[in-house]
Structures are given as structure tokens and as C-alpha cells.
Design a protein around this nucleic acid. Sequence first.
DNA 1: ATGTCC
Length: 411
Amino acid sequence: MKHEDYDVVQYKDGRPIKMWTKGVPVEEEAKQQLANTSRLPFIYKHIAVMPDVHLGKGSTIGSVIPTLGAVIPAAVGVDIGCGMMAAKTTLFAHDLPDNLGPLRTAIEKAIPHGMSPKTRSFKGRDKGSWESPPSAVDNAWAELKDGFDEICLKTPRLKNTNNYRHLGTLGSGNHFVEVCLDEANAVWFMLHSGSRGVGNAIGSHFIELAKQDMRTHFINLPDQDLAYLPEGTQHYKDYIEAVGWAQKFARMNREVMMLNLIAAVRTVISKPFETHIEAVNCHHNYVQKEHHFGKDVLVTRKGAVSARAGELGIIPGSMGAKSFIVRGKGNEESFHSCSHGAGRTMSRTAAKKLYTVADQIAATEGVECRKDANVIDEIPMAYKDIDAVMLAQTALVDVVHVLKQVVCVKG
DNA sequence: ATGTCC
């Protein structure tokens, strides 16, 4: 069936799959995952597929999964509440120094980044978490602490995770902090991170519980990672509480980093400036209760952003590509959603095999960022063409600003 | 993505 803005696929015994992927390649394995997910008995109406769709764990990244009466912890994943924050400043390109090196160094000093293993062998190079957290962290943790004590009553092992020490820290992988310029040369700050160690522990714990429950009740699934928790059970209740807390942690994590990022920039640029002229803080990996087609349902956005009418969102490109600040059109067929990025075309291992440091240097020309062997998996060529991805979702969002990074800090 | 005490 053909529509103006999306295609519909329906597999035997499955709910429809509505795909905003016109002009964008979709892997066969991703289609198989979508077929599996669409056959779950508690999918509400249909699955909405964003143009950045690609293979994920259990279900595809770049999809919107509305459910009635159950939740799939592995669909939300382990980086619960992962998302983006961006803030426009009163600075312009000409206010930035010619040499951006010191600016990058100041940001790297102000925001802990990279992994933070707790094992003895890594002692002394624990750069990913706070040694002595600044006041912004204490203030934010004061708002999170009571909720954390509550979820620890049910899941005591969360007490042993990095939680307070990880608030306001970046992490690793595709998490980043950037200084960008928009189409009018205004300076923006932008960052990408989630709920760090504690969110990971919550995700892993409930993914395992769901798998156990499936075995206990002899429920067979095409993929273990589609294991679900039925509404009405204690595990479902506990998960909804814990995942909600992790999402709050992730949002505040980004806010704390933004504050420390601004303070770091002020140490390098003496000219006074204001921030949050426009500001967005959005999850792209989360689950929440929403109202759609007249019903209260759970909506899991696995690599997708909420795009209610007028709502602002962020669609980042890859390391050397443009990013977009978008405004939602409130498209109900997509459960008011849009893509969360360009989407990978190859795995991280494949990218590292195919490309060299020289390729990475060429692809990130003009950006003050790391260009070593450890970031080759983030090379722009390992991602889909962001312009094609944007074109495929014109019915979902309008572009408000186009951003290009000049400084990028990676974990 | 995290952390190597599941």
C-alpha cells in the first residue's frame, strides 16, 4: 500500500508497519526484526519506522513501538533516557578564538568523559566519573535521591552502581559534547548522553527478569530480546518506576553537563554572553505513557524523538555532518515521532576495518576533535546520508535550524 | 553503553 509520506508493510499475523523510509536504504535484517516485533500480541495499532532505522538488539533502532498491557525492557535498551540537549547562545562565530584547541581542552577538563571502571587495575585513571563533584551535581542529586532510595528498596544491587558519581558525566561510544554554528553563525552548545552506569544496571536487570519470566511461563518468542513484562505484574510495576527514574536521571545528567559546559566556555571566552536563547532537551531512547487514537498506551521510542505539534527536537548528524533542530508536526500516524539521527549503514567493527585514520582526518576537516584510530567507527561514511533521512520525514518535522560542529569532544 | 562483583 502506498501513501504520500510512508509505506505500509504487514507480515502474516502481524500488526502493520508504517515506514517513513522513502529514498533511504533499509537492511533485510532490520525488516526481519520489524516483522518479529509486529507479531507481538500487545502492539497497539501499528509500529512506526523512522528513516534512520537499523539493526538493534531485539528490535530495530529508529522505531516507535506502542504497546497496550506490556512493556519490552530490551526495546528501551540499556542506555535508558539517552538523548540530546542543545542551547543557543548570544555568541557568534567571530567571538570564537582562531585556535579552538584550548576551548576543547577546557570542555574536556570540565566534563568527565570516557569509561570509569571500578576495578583496581584501572585506579588512577578513572576519568569518566567525578572525584569531587561540583555544586551543580549536588543540587541535581538532591532532586533524584528520594526516587533512587525507592527503587533501591526493590532492586538493592543498584546501590552498588555509579549513580551520584556519574551525574553530569558524558560516558563513551557515540556520546559527545559539541560547539556548533547555526545557519546565521550563532554559537550553540550541544551534547548527547544518557543515564550512565545506573541506567545501564536498571536496563540489564529488567531485561534479565523479563527473559526469566518468559521461561517460567513457557512463552516462546522469535527473539529472546523481545521478552516482555505484562501489566499487572510486580516486575512491570517495578520496571515502570525504575525506568522513569533513569529517564529523569538522564535528563538531569544533560542539564548538569550543559551548566558545566557553559562555565568552561566562560573560562576561555572573556566576552560576556547569554545562553538558552532557545533550548531543547529530548530523550531518544525511552518509554512513557501517552494518549494516542483515544487510548492511554505506552510508547517506546528506540532511537526516535517525540515530535508533537510545535515541540522542538534534535536530529544530530554524524561527526563531520550537519545536525538539525526540528519542530514537530504532530503527525499522529507516527505517534508524533521523528528520527534520532542519520542511522548507521555498517557496524562499528566494519567501519574500523574499512576506513583509516587518514579517511577520518579528511572527513572531519575543519572540526576541532579527536581524529585517532579509536574514533574511526564514528566516521561519517558509516552513517546514512542525513539529507536523504531528513527528506524522508518532511511529514513529521520542519527544520528550524541547521547546525555544523566546530568543536567536538568524544568520550 | 557500561564495566569486568551479572
